[in-house]
Write a protein that binds this DNA or RNA. Structure first.
Lengths: 149, 149
DNA sequence: CCTTTTATGGGATATCATGGGATAACATGG
DNA sequence: CCATGTTATCCCATGATATCCCATAAAAGG
């Protein structure tokens, strides 16, 4: 389970420590690397285990072949995904293109999303989370209802 | 079952003893840690067992991966939740951000809520519970009035 | 009372995040 | 096939932080 948020620094080699609690979760799932790709809709980098990427690709594959979103998703996910290996200190080296997508310079904010996590520019996230919180408050009841059924 | 209230102290390392009766309840449920997050509506910190968060995350995970609500819920729930481990004396180290949300300085008030519990600033709680009591009285009067008609 | 559990304080130790040098892998052009 | 520059790995050092462990005080229970 990836929860909470952690702010870490990018060094000049483009490396950043993945929070220890995230790392131990990844190891527990039996992986020594992590998949990342740009979010479709937000200025953030998505991180997930290999197993989840497999599922996402399958979900896209199951879309109607004539759905115009299919190609967009397929390209966005498969072509833009990267596998990052951990060094012996638990860091990964970030891909420059992805950092640019998320507008990240020197500080990075890891944001837990349950089964996945994201990497944000800290000030960008602050803005997003404010509006997310408001929307979530409005729609929370809806989720509850669904989860009970 | 978490019942009654207990007032304990935060030490200068940010640690606080979880009341023994709460701890034994948590252990009985088979957990060696506890999840906490800011209340959506009140200046208090909510505590619940891991299993409760797991269910919510599962519900979110079952949403369509391309649904924008998914990001919103995931952020509002997962990013704001923290897992706290007990030390060998039954204390947890509090997250500064949460203390700020609840306006807690040195004294903390544990408030049992049945299946969950809360952590309040003692004087804040007094104020909020008084006004809650007034509202309850008003509604009770109203209820009575209705039932008599 | 006396014993046991609980709450609190603080020093010692381990873990984590970060920086940077040294080495190895790689691609490219001659 | 070699030379060279680039990039990615590996390794060690260090400061900050969190965790472990022991000591003591306060409270609860028999």
């Amino acid at each position: 389970m990836f929860i909470s948020t952690y702010e870490n620094k990018l060094d000049k080699k483009g490396r950043v420590s993945v929070p220890a609690s995230y790392r131990s979760q990844i190891n527990k799932d039996g992986f020594d690397s992590i998949i990342c790709y740009p979010s479709f809709t937000l200025p953030t980098i998505e991180f997930c285990p290999q197993s989840r990427l497999d599922k996402i690709i399958e979900a896209i594959d199951n879309l109607n072949p004539f759905d115009e979103n299919r190609d967009i998703f397929a390209t966005s996910v498969a072509a833009n995904s990267h596998k990052l290996n951990f060094d012996s200190e638990g860091r990964v080296t970030m891909v420059h293109k992805l950092l640019k997508h998320a507008n990240i310079n020197s500080k990075v904010l890891f944001v837990g999303q349950g089964k996945t996590f994201q990497m944000w520019d800290p000030s960008n996230f602050k803005r997003f989370s404010l509006s997310a919180q408001k929307k979530a408050n409005l729609k929370r009841a809806e989720l509850k209802w669904k989860s009970e059924n």
